[in-house]
């Protein structure tokens, strides 16, 4: 490092379960150029300063959803957050809030994967069709109904932002609800009744108190809060109207 080289301090939350009792902070001096993302900052640490630092990353362009971290306390993708926005102050990087830490910046996302499986994130066809019957046709309007909610990259920033998930981790949460909604409002899908059981349950949408921070931090503009709130209405209608329409809705 020459004397002219600018540096920035990156404070990282470290935790190695096999030797640390609890997480602690470690500060690194990293050479700074103003085109560097926070991800590049931690990559520099791993490559040149401390090879034991662990974090997830892949695409470097906000598509894969792997590199979510708390950056100065705000959930963000580290690949699209730039060090120049903090320089010359120190940047604090921590594992995503509300999740158990596996090691350093790597969180355990098993709970989320279970939720993702539970919403049946695939089209359950309304009717069996043979190949000869051709493809399912959809109007632009029908596409519009769900397209926004299909952009989720499972980065979990919304879970780190959600105070209700922080208080009760069994809450199905923003991303899973948005994806559930994406399939429920797809004109080709016939699985709504099954999925509504989850929406209506004690793990469902009524854990949400309409904070809206999930939608604010979402890097793909999925607006999960919108999906959650639409399903509060759906769930309430289902709750009261099931007495009139015994065939619809959950048990």
């Amino acid at each position: 490092m020459s004397d002219m080289q600018k540096t920035i301090e990156i404070e990282v939350l470290r935790y190695h379960p096999e030797k640390d009792k609890e997480p602690h902070r470690q500060v690194f001096e990293v050479p700074f150029t103003d085109d560097m993302s926070v991800l590049q900052g931690v990559q520099y640490i791993k490559d040149y300063l401390d090879g034991s630092l662990s974090f997830r990353w892949s695409c470097r362009m906000a598509i894969c959803g792997s590199c979510g971290m708390m950056i100065n306390g705000i959930p963000n993708l580290s690949c699209q957050t730039f060090l120049r926005d903090y320089y010359p102050a120190r940047v604090r990087v921590e594992a995503l809030a509300h999740f158990p830490i596996e090691r350093d910046l790597v969180i355990n996302m098993e709970g989320f994967i279970e939720k993702l499986e539970s919403i049946q994130p695939y089209i359950i066809p309304k009717e069996e069709r043979t190949l000869a019957q051709g493809e399912y046709l959809q109007t632009p309007e029908q596409l519009n109904a769900y397209e926004q909610f299909s952009s989720c990259i499972n980065c979990l920033l919304c879970y780190a932002a959600c105070p209700q998930f922080g208080l009760n981790s069994s809450f199905i949460g923003p991303a899973a609800t948005a994806l559930l909604h994406r399939y429920n409002v797809d004109s080709r899908d016939g699985g709504k009744a099954e999925r509504m059981e989850l929406i209506n349950s004690e793990e469902g949408v009524f854990n949400c108190t309409a904070v809206g921070y999930c939608s604010e931090v979402c890097p793909k503009h999925v607006d999960p809060a919108n999906a959650v709130n639409q399903n509060k209405t759906n769930s309430a209608a289902d709750y009261f109207l099931r007495f009139l329409a015994p065939k619809g809705g959950a048990k």
Binding site: S118, E197, N200, E202, E203, F206, S235, Y239
Partner: peptide, 16 residues
Amino acid sequence: MKAPLKRSNAPIFWAL
């Protein structure tokens, strides 16, 4: 999910 799902009675309070 593990436990069987229990329908929430929240809609009553939420509607009020």
